[in-house]
Protein backbone atom coordinates (compact mmCIF):
# COMPACT_ATOMS: atom_id res chain seq x y z
CA UNK A 1 0.00 0.00 0.00
CA UNK A 2 2.80 2.35 0.97
CA UNK A 3 4.67 1.93 -2.27
CA UNK A 4 1.49 2.43 -4.22
CA UNK A 5 0.72 5.55 -2.34
CA UNK A 6 4.16 6.94 -2.83
CA UNK A 7 4.00 6.29 -6.53
CA UNK A 8 0.56 7.78 -6.67
CA UNK A 9 1.76 10.95 -5.03
CA UNK A 10 4.69 11.18 -7.40
CA UNK A 11 2.52 10.73 -10.44
CA UNK A 12 -0.29 12.90 -9.16
CA UNK A 13 2.15 15.64 -8.18
CA UNK A 14 3.73 15.66 -11.60
CA UNK A 15 0.45 15.59 -13.44
CA UNK A 16 -1.04 18.47 -11.46
CA UNK A 17 2.11 20.42 -12.26
CA UNK A 18 1.59 19.62 -15.88
CA UNK A 19 -2.06 20.65 -15.75
CA UNK A 20 -1.60 23.70 -13.62
CA UNK A 21 -0.63 25.87 -16.53
CA UNK A 22 2.49 27.91 -15.97
CA UNK A 23 3.08 28.29 -12.26
CA UNK A 24 5.93 30.69 -11.73
CA UNK A 25 8.50 28.16 -10.79
CA UNK A 26 12.20 28.78 -10.51
CA UNK A 27 13.66 25.37 -10.50
CA UNK A 28 11.19 23.76 -12.81
CA UNK A 29 13.77 21.35 -14.10
CA UNK A 30 14.55 20.05 -10.62
CA UNK A 31 10.92 19.23 -9.93
CA UNK A 32 10.97 16.27 -12.25
CA UNK A 33 13.62 14.60 -10.15
CA UNK A 34 12.47 11.86 -7.80
CA UNK A 35 11.45 12.77 -4.29
CA UNK A 36 14.93 12.12 -2.93
CA UNK A 37 15.93 15.34 -4.66
CA UNK A 38 14.56 18.18 -2.58
CA UNK A 39 14.14 21.78 -3.66
CA UNK A 40 16.75 23.84 -1.88
CA UNK A 41 17.62 27.49 -1.60
CA UNK A 42 19.81 29.71 0.53
CA UNK A 43 16.82 31.83 1.37
CA UNK A 44 13.29 31.07 0.26
CA UNK A 45 11.09 34.02 -0.60
CA UNK A 46 7.78 34.74 -2.26
CA UNK A 47 6.58 37.54 -4.50
CA UNK A 48 2.82 38.09 -4.67
CA UNK A 49 1.58 40.06 -7.65
CA UNK A 50 -1.60 41.68 -6.36
CA UNK A 51 -2.44 42.97 -9.85
CA UNK A 52 -2.89 39.42 -11.02
CA UNK A 53 -4.90 38.58 -7.92
CA UNK A 54 -7.20 41.49 -8.74
CA UNK A 55 -7.61 40.38 -12.35
CA UNK A 56 -8.63 36.90 -11.19
CA UNK A 57 -10.99 37.52 -8.28
CA UNK A 58 -11.94 33.88 -7.73
CA UNK A 59 -8.38 32.69 -7.76
CA UNK A 60 -7.42 33.40 -4.14
CA UNK A 61 -9.98 30.93 -2.96
CA UNK A 62 -8.24 28.17 -4.91
CA UNK A 63 -4.79 28.71 -3.47
CA UNK A 64 -6.12 29.11 0.08
CA UNK A 65 -8.06 25.91 -0.30
CA UNK A 66 -5.06 24.07 -1.76
CA UNK A 67 -2.94 25.03 1.25
CA UNK A 68 -5.54 24.31 3.89
CA UNK A 69 -6.42 21.00 2.33
CA UNK A 70 -2.93 19.50 2.16
CA UNK A 71 -2.14 20.69 5.65
CA UNK A 72 -5.32 19.49 7.34
CA UNK A 73 -6.28 22.99 8.44
CA UNK A 74 -9.70 22.78 10.09
CA UNK A 75 -12.62 25.02 9.25
CA UNK A 76 -14.51 25.98 12.41
CA UNK A 77 -16.77 28.48 10.64
CA UNK A 78 -16.35 30.94 13.50
CA UNK A 79 -13.71 33.64 13.98
CA UNK A 80 -13.03 32.78 17.63
CA UNK A 81 -11.48 29.35 17.03
CA UNK A 82 -10.26 30.18 13.53
CA UNK A 83 -7.04 28.68 12.18
CA UNK A 84 -5.51 29.94 8.95
CA UNK A 85 -2.17 29.59 7.22
CA UNK A 86 -2.84 31.78 4.20
CA UNK A 87 -5.84 34.00 3.82
CA UNK A 88 -7.34 37.10 2.22
CA UNK A 89 -7.08 40.38 4.03
CA UNK A 90 -8.35 43.71 2.77
CA UNK A 91 -5.47 45.87 1.57
CA UNK A 92 -6.14 48.48 4.26
CA UNK A 93 -5.66 45.78 6.91
CA UNK A 94 -2.79 43.87 5.33
CA UNK A 95 -0.96 47.16 4.80
CA UNK A 96 -2.37 48.87 7.83
CA UNK A 97 0.11 51.75 7.78
CA UNK A 98 0.12 52.33 4.01
CA UNK A 99 -3.55 52.85 3.31
CA UNK A 100 -5.04 56.24 2.58
CA UNK A 101 -8.64 57.31 2.65
CA UNK A 102 -8.78 58.87 -0.82
CA UNK A 103 -7.74 55.72 -2.57
CA UNK A 104 -10.42 54.13 -4.67
CA UNK A 105 -12.61 51.88 -2.59
CA UNK A 106 -11.76 48.90 -4.76
CA UNK A 107 -8.11 49.53 -3.98
CA UNK A 108 -8.59 49.78 -0.23
CA UNK A 109 -10.72 46.68 -0.26
CA UNK A 110 -8.45 44.85 -2.64
CA UNK A 111 -8.06 41.40 -1.21
CA UNK A 112 -4.41 40.72 -0.46
CA UNK A 113 -3.14 37.24 0.27
CA UNK A 114 -1.28 37.16 3.56
CA UNK A 115 0.70 34.38 5.20
CA UNK A 116 3.67 33.92 7.48
CA UNK A 117 6.37 36.30 6.27
CA UNK A 118 9.24 34.00 7.22
CA UNK A 119 11.07 37.02 8.56
CA UNK A 120 14.82 37.31 8.55
CA UNK A 121 14.63 38.35 12.19
CA UNK A 122 11.39 36.73 13.37
CA UNK A 123 10.00 38.10 16.67
CA UNK A 124 8.07 34.87 17.24
CA UNK A 125 11.33 32.91 17.30
CA UNK A 126 12.90 35.42 19.65
CA UNK A 127 10.16 35.01 22.26
CA UNK A 128 9.49 31.25 22.09
CA UNK A 129 10.61 29.77 25.43
CA UNK A 130 11.24 26.24 24.10
CA UNK A 131 12.53 26.78 20.54
CA UNK A 132 9.39 25.08 19.33
CA UNK A 133 9.52 27.66 16.58
CA UNK A 134 12.85 28.54 14.99
CA UNK A 135 14.38 29.81 11.78
CA UNK A 136 16.05 27.14 9.72
CA UNK A 137 19.68 28.10 9.06
CA UNK A 138 19.97 26.59 5.62
CA UNK A 139 17.02 28.28 3.91
CA UNK A 140 15.39 30.79 6.26
CA UNK A 141 12.10 28.94 6.69
CA UNK A 142 10.49 29.72 10.06
CA UNK A 143 9.59 26.27 11.35
CA UNK A 144 7.16 24.86 13.91
CA UNK A 145 7.73 21.77 16.06
CA UNK A 146 4.29 20.66 17.23
CA UNK A 147 5.86 18.04 19.46
CA UNK A 148 7.57 20.65 21.54
CA UNK A 149 5.14 23.61 21.61
CA UNK A 150 3.76 24.17 25.11
CA UNK A 151 0.92 26.39 23.91
CA UNK A 152 1.96 29.55 25.79
CA UNK A 153 0.93 31.73 22.82
CA UNK A 154 3.78 34.18 23.38
CA UNK A 155 4.45 33.95 19.62
CA UNK A 156 0.89 35.07 18.88
CA UNK A 157 1.55 38.17 20.95
CA UNK A 158 4.89 38.78 19.21
CA UNK A 159 3.95 38.31 15.55
CA UNK A 160 3.27 41.73 13.97
CA UNK A 161 1.40 40.12 11.08
CA UNK A 162 -1.20 37.98 12.86
CA UNK A 163 0.17 34.98 11.02
CA UNK A 164 -0.12 32.52 13.87
CA UNK A 165 -3.10 30.46 15.00
CA UNK A 166 -3.71 28.47 18.15
CA UNK A 167 -5.66 25.23 18.46
CA UNK A 168 -8.27 26.23 21.01
CA UNK A 169 -9.91 22.82 20.61
CA UNK A 170 -9.40 19.45 18.93
CA UNK A 171 -9.30 20.28 15.22
CA UNK A 172 -9.91 16.82 13.77
CA UNK A 173 -13.74 16.85 13.70
CA UNK A 174 -13.57 20.10 11.71
CA UNK A 175 -11.33 18.90 8.91
CA UNK A 176 -13.49 18.31 5.85
CA UNK A 177 -11.33 15.69 4.25
CA UNK A 178 -8.27 14.41 6.04
CA UNK A 179 -5.04 14.33 4.07
CA UNK A 180 -3.36 11.16 5.35
CA UNK A 181 0.22 12.14 4.55
CA UNK A 182 0.25 15.21 6.73
CA UNK A 183 -0.40 15.18 10.48
CA UNK A 184 -3.33 16.98 12.02
CA UNK A 185 -2.60 18.98 15.15
CA UNK A 186 -3.73 18.41 18.71
CA UNK A 187 -5.48 20.97 20.87
CA UNK A 188 -3.19 23.39 22.65
CA UNK A 189 -0.44 24.01 20.09
CA UNK A 190 0.29 26.89 17.73
CA UNK A 191 0.51 26.51 13.96
CA UNK A 192 1.23 28.57 10.86
CA UNK A 193 2.50 28.44 7.30
CA UNK A 194 5.86 26.66 6.92
CA UNK A 195 6.47 27.53 3.26
CA UNK A 196 5.47 23.90 2.62
CA UNK A 197 8.80 22.64 3.89
CA UNK A 198 7.50 19.06 3.64
CA UNK A 199 6.77 19.58 -0.05
CA UNK A 200 10.10 21.29 -0.72
CA UNK A 201 11.75 18.21 0.77
CA UNK A 202 9.94 16.09 -1.82
CA UNK A 203 10.95 18.41 -4.60
CA UNK A 204 7.57 20.11 -4.88
CA UNK A 205 6.65 23.77 -4.89
CA UNK A 206 4.46 25.16 -2.10
CA UNK A 207 0.81 24.17 -2.49
CA UNK A 208 -0.43 27.74 -2.94
CA UNK A 209 2.12 28.45 -5.66
CA UNK A 210 1.24 25.24 -7.43
CA UNK A 211 -2.49 26.00 -7.22
CA UNK A 212 -2.18 29.53 -8.58
CA UNK A 213 -3.28 29.46 -12.20
CA UNK A 214 -2.81 33.19 -12.64
CA UNK A 215 0.90 33.08 -11.93
CA UNK A 216 0.49 35.62 -9.17
CA UNK A 217 2.68 33.73 -6.71
CA UNK A 218 6.37 33.35 -7.40
CA UNK A 219 8.58 31.33 -5.10
CA UNK A 220 12.34 31.12 -5.23
CA UNK A 221 15.77 31.79 -3.84
CA UNK A 222 16.37 35.34 -2.69
CA UNK A 223 20.11 34.78 -2.62
CA UNK A 224 20.29 33.62 -6.19
CA UNK A 225 20.63 36.70 -8.46
CA UNK A 226 19.36 34.68 -11.40
CA UNK A 227 16.18 33.54 -9.69
CA UNK A 228 12.74 34.61 -10.85
CA UNK A 229 11.97 36.31 -7.53
CA UNK A 230 15.11 38.39 -7.85
CA UNK A 231 14.16 39.32 -11.36
CA UNK A 232 10.70 40.43 -10.22
CA UNK A 233 12.18 42.42 -7.34
CA UNK A 234 14.61 44.07 -9.77
CA UNK A 235 12.02 45.00 -12.35
CA UNK A 236 9.05 45.98 -10.16
CA UNK A 237 8.35 48.30 -7.28
CA UNK A 238 7.52 46.01 -4.39
CA UNK A 239 6.46 46.55 -0.81
CA UNK A 240 6.55 44.46 2.33
CA UNK A 241 4.32 44.49 5.39
CA UNK A 242 5.51 46.74 8.23
CA UNK A 243 9.08 47.15 7.01
CA UNK A 244 9.75 49.67 9.79
CA UNK A 245 9.82 46.96 12.44
CA UNK A 246 13.05 45.53 11.11
CA UNK A 247 11.76 41.99 10.81
CA UNK A 248 12.72 41.79 7.10
CA UNK A 249 9.81 39.75 5.71
CA UNK A 250 10.52 37.30 2.88
CA UNK A 251 7.14 37.90 1.28
CA UNK A 252 7.07 40.80 -1.19
CA UNK A 253 4.08 42.39 -2.91
CA UNK A 254 3.72 43.96 -6.33
CA UNK A 255 0.87 46.46 -6.16
Amino acid sequence: MGLDRRNFIKIAGLSTLGLAGKPAVDAIARIRLPEEAPLTAKRWAMVIDLRKCRENPDCNEACIHACHKVHNVPDFKNPKDEIKWIWEERFEHAFHDQSQEYADESHRELPALVLCNHCDDPPCVRVCPTEATWKRDEDGVVMMDWHRCIGCRYCLAACPYGARSFNWRDPRPFIEEIEPDFPTRMRGVVEKCTFCEERLARGEMPACVEACDAGALTFGDLEDPESRVRELLRTHFTIRRKPGLGTQPSVYYII
Partner: peptide, 28 residues
Protein backbone atom coordinates in the same frame (compact mmCIF):
# COMPACT_ATOMS: atom_id res chain seq x y z
CA UNK B 1 0.70 30.40 33.89
CA UNK B 2 0.01 26.70 34.21
CA UNK B 3 -3.74 27.01 33.59
CA UNK B 4 -3.03 29.27 30.61
CA UNK B 5 -0.87 26.69 28.82
CA UNK B 6 -2.27 24.84 25.84
CA UNK B 7 -0.13 21.81 26.73
CA UNK B 8 0.40 22.20 30.49
CA UNK B 9 2.22 18.91 30.95
CA UNK B 10 4.91 19.97 28.54
CA UNK B 11 5.77 22.95 30.74
CA UNK B 12 9.09 21.37 31.71
CA UNK B 13 10.18 21.91 28.11
CA UNK B 14 11.09 25.39 29.32
CA UNK B 15 13.90 23.78 31.34
CA UNK B 16 14.64 20.83 29.05
CA UNK B 17 15.24 23.24 26.18
CA UNK B 18 16.35 26.43 27.95
CA UNK B 19 16.12 29.39 25.61
CA UNK B 20 17.93 32.46 26.93
CA UNK B 21 16.67 34.73 24.16
CA UNK B 22 13.10 34.29 25.43
CA UNK B 23 11.95 36.61 28.19
CA UNK B 24 9.57 33.90 29.33
CA UNK B 25 12.54 31.69 30.18
CA UNK B 26 14.01 34.44 32.38
CA UNK B 27 10.66 35.12 33.98
CA UNK B 28 10.39 31.45 34.93
Amino acid sequence: IFVDMGQPFRILNVFIHPTPHSMMFWDT
